[in-house]
Design a binder for these strands. Structure first.
Lengths: 199, 199, 199, 199
DNA sequence: AATGAATGAGGGTTCATTCAT
DNA sequence: TATGAATGAACCCTCATTCAT
């Protein structure tokens, strides 16, 4: 008597599977047939829920927007200070913690994303975030550091995955300390923002 | 009797144009027709010089190997020290300086590269480099930092491009100081390697 | 308790909208989704009222049959004479006056109609009409003229539309005189029927 | 030893077969697969010769332009007179004589053609022709008659085909007299151009 | 009287690749 | 050292249609 398709939430399942495949094989190399097959439906079924392949991607991205927007909103209400700057990094890191697959996807599919309109929207969000991390009159280096700092959060996650895979007689690393490392490195990068170049 | 195409080195021109297009639109979305068109030859001509599309990519990657291999070779002959570690970062940065397009390509086409055998070879090289940056008994954090440090070099280059694009009435930033910033950030990240976690 | 859709006559509204779209974009290029959308219902709703797409078309055609059948019926009871012939043309023209969209559709979708069984029925009707326009022993030219005459009625309507669109600072032409022109031209063509070829 | 594909003129053969199928089943209902199949090649082969399905159609249409353009060119050099008007009709009729399939296609696929850019070009040509058929200060009726006259040429051809098919114990009609009838009818319609409305 | 979800068939198009010349 | 012609597989997408509710 139980339904075979685990609920009417096909739309959500599509987004799920799509993200999984997109992040694994890339957006271009993932065909709608693969997505449909893995879901046990027809390609045409996807088109009942999404107007276009790009639309599926947009659906994915939207599911990531919330935490970033919240971080931006919070940041806008604070006066600038190094503590606020660090807090933004922290909030960003936290917000992204359970969205690693999406982050990987974003990082590894830039050429696609860049040309796909959804990319512009994401980019703008990131730029806004970085602006809140910079002091009143940021130098070029300040701005680069802000951007790199956030990106380090992203990158570190899957770098540490790779590091773990590499011959590891060691103990498996728990997710929290992985995140802690990411945060530490990101804050390192952010720390020099606003300080005079000591070159 | 003079050659009709500027030089007979069509092969090199193919690699050139291919890299340009691959890095701009991505490997998957770049068709051989586009490459051929921009070169003013036929698709079939490409097949005279390369056996497959993947082969072109291999050609590209090979042209990047040298400086990394040299850095590895150099590093292997030095006993480990923080100075050596920094020097490796420096050499890597320098070697990559005029290969930014390739770096971008590598970064932005991971899903493709991962599945393309040429990726494995590149990854191994990078791992070797990072190993030389780590002390004798690296912690997990040490290893992550080493990897992130190198990746920061890559990432910073095109992050700063983006930062420049963003509205700035300021002076255009010259390539050297761009590289200097990249290096500084990378060294920041590397600096804590080997130090006890002060969390 | 009032009906939610203006009237319960959805069926008629479907035929209406369908004809509008069929005549504008053609039968093949008009999808059931477009029809449904414009009506504010679902595709599936159409299937409550019609068994197939072709059925909708049949519905359309049927709504046009009456005046032609009447003209035929009338013609059959008259003995042939040039006056009767002209009267048939007149009645046909009048009957079609408020069915221009349908005429256009018929004219411009012949390949479809030809293969759709509804086409045969319509064609037969037209042939019957032309027969009544021909004298007792029609020559080939007589028969052609009869057919062309009727077709001129159809064609003229949307030709004159096109002519109006074409740049003319002149007064907009009222429908009646448009019809008058159509009729005049059609009668011109019919006039020579039965006369010896004066070639 | 003879080549199986009857020559390297694939491009021309495509146009040929395409026109045949387009005019028989309509543009929309004719799939590239059908065209390819009948030619004994792959769909992809069509794309070597034409960029698009629409392009095939454009190829077809271009092959019809010449005689019309010539008629226009000739007409432009003559001062207007009823004789010139009739001569234009004659030249048009002659030019179209061996292009009946194309004419049929044009007539029966208006909805498609209208939206296909190639339609605009054709329409302009026809308008130009009709302008040459009108006197200096044409009334609305004059302009309609000019347009109808030309269209009668087109229509008559396949009307008379239909008339022949219809039960014909009679002798088969030879093409020349068919054309003669068409011309006669068209000239009938044109004759009243410029005369005061005798309504 | 109508909908939501899905399907199967087919559409036009693009691609990497081949091969005789 | 290249090209012209072609292919086979796959792609994204659309459509008419169905059926349980």
């Amino acid at each position: 008597m139980t339904t075979q398709t685990p609920r009417g939430d096909t739309r959500a399942r599509i987004v799920d599977v799509a993200l999984e495949l997109f992040s694994e094989h890339g957006y271009e190399k993932t065909s709608l047939r693969e997505i449909a097959d893995r879901l046990g439906v027809t390609k045409a079924a996807l088109y009942y829920h999404f107007r276009t392949k790009e639309d599926i991607l947009a659906g994915i991205v939207d599911s990531m927007s919330a935490p970033i927007d919240e971080a931006i909103a919070w940041g806008r209400e604070q006066p600038y200070s190094p503590e606020v700057r660090d807090e933004i990094v922290r909030r960003f890191a936290e917000g992204m913690a359970d969205r690693q697959r999406l982050l990987r996807f974003f990082h590894e599919n830039q050429p696609t994303i860049r040309e796909l309109s959804v990319g512009t929207r994401f980019k703008e969000r990131m730029i806004n975030l970085t602006r809140l991390m910079q002091g009143p009159e940021p130098t070029f280096e300040d701005r680069v550091r802000a951007a790199v700092s956030l990106m380090v959060i992203n990158v570190t996650h899957f770098i540490s995955e790779a590091v773990e895979e590499e011959q590891c007689g060691n103990e498996p690393v728990d997710p929290e300390s992985r995140q802690a490392v990411a945060l530490r490195v990101a804050l390192d990068v952010a720390e020099q923002i606003g300080k005079p170049a000591q070159d």
